[in-house]
């Protein structure tokens, strides 16, 4: 039963990684860049929700909606100001810019909200569901996190598979030049991708801080890096890969914490990543399409 408990916490943590990883993977897929500021968007989302709920007494749902709105806007603005002018620049320049944006967001948060940790109020309460005579306990946060992740995955899969905009996003991620020749506005599509990724980051931020209630300006960076790892693990650019990578990463991390050592858990996670990349360089679900002649 403890095993099952650990497994469920792993899936729950993994769901958060998966939601963050989606942002990395979608942006990478379409803009071929690693948006290292993505983790900090999570932090901004969490702060917005924190202030909305605990200072202005908005209902949690409104807090989450506001956080999503602010982050979506933030994602679009960051893309317009920082990344769009570098569309033709070498990828290293874009990468450094992304790191710069990451520090900019962290330091702005430091100025605005100070470095004192805030205790995040859980948006779904602190209750738990007890099963099997109390041997298995599922906190509300865990349940909501897993359900949210599933719903987001279903919506995104439907969106990219069935809508005009979603298909245009896939077309752009394969070949921007050809997509342009179809009449697709590539810049608008990239903007849209940043908007979706950042909106999801806000959700992830709220879920993360509901489960681990310490909120600081650096709260987003480690989960951001881990979610990036999850995206690479699953195959960067692939939406199902982000889910698989996120879940595996969460489960491995929790099991490593429980059975090996909590200090070593991150090392174990990254060791597994290295092994996977040695065997499958494109990640678990990554594709490398050969050219037909």
């Amino acid at each position: 039963m403890t095993l099952l408990n650990f497994f469920i916490s792993g899936i729950s943590l993994g769901s958060i990684y998966a939601i963050i990883a989606l942002g990395y993977t979608m942006v990478y897929g379409i803009a071929k860049m690693l948006n290292f500021a993505h983790g900090d968007v999570i932090m901004v989302g969490a702060y917005v929700c924190f202030y909305a709920v605990s200072r202005y007494d908005l209902p949690p749902v409104a807090g989450v909606a506001l956080a999503m709105f602010v982050c979506t806007l933030l994602g679009i603005i960051v893309e317009k100001l920082a990344y769009k002018p570098l569309r033709q620049a070498p990828s290293l320049a874009v990468l450094i810019t992304a790191i710069g944006v990451s520090y900019f967001l962290q330091n702005t948060a430091l100025l605005l909200w100070s470095s004192n940790p805030k205790v995040f109020p859980s948006v779904v309460g602190r209750g738990a569901i007890k099963l099997f005579d109390g041997q298995l306990s599922l906190s509300h946060v865990t349940v909501v996190t897993i359900v949210t992740c599933v719903v987001i995955m279903i919506c995104l899969t439907w969106f990219t598979g069935n809508t005009r905009m979603g298909k245009a996003m896939r077309a752009c991620s394969e070949d921007k030049g050809a997509a342009q020749l179809m009449g697709i506005n590539v810049n608008a599509t990239i903007s849209m991708t940043f908007a979706i990724g950042s909106g999801l980051a806000a959700v992830a931020g709220v879920l993360l801080c509901s489960a681990y209630p310490t909120l600081m300006p650096t709260t987003g960076s480690l989960p951001g890096i881990k979610a990036f790892t999850a995206a690479v693990f699953g195959g960067i650019g692939s939406i199902p890969g982000a889910l698989l990578g996120g879940l595996l990463l969460g489960v491995i991390e929790i099991f490593a914490k429980a059975y090996i050592s909590s200090q070593l858990s991150d090392a174990v996670v990254f060791a597994v990543l290295i092994v996977v990349l040695l065997v499958k360089p494109a990640g678990l679900l990554g594709v490398q399409m050969p050219e037909k002649v």
């Binding site: 298909k167 896939r170 394969e174 030049g177 020749l181 009449g183 594709v287």
Partner: peptide, 25 residues
């Protein structure tokens, strides 16, 4: 409409989806 050099079709999308992209406008 331009059919670019080297075809440049969307290899990971289905035939029908490729055609739908052609009708994007």
């Amino acid at each position: 409409a331009q059919v670019p050099e080297g075809r440049r079709i969307f290899l990971q999308m289905t035939v029908q989806e490729n055609l739908e992209m052609g009708a994007y406008t």
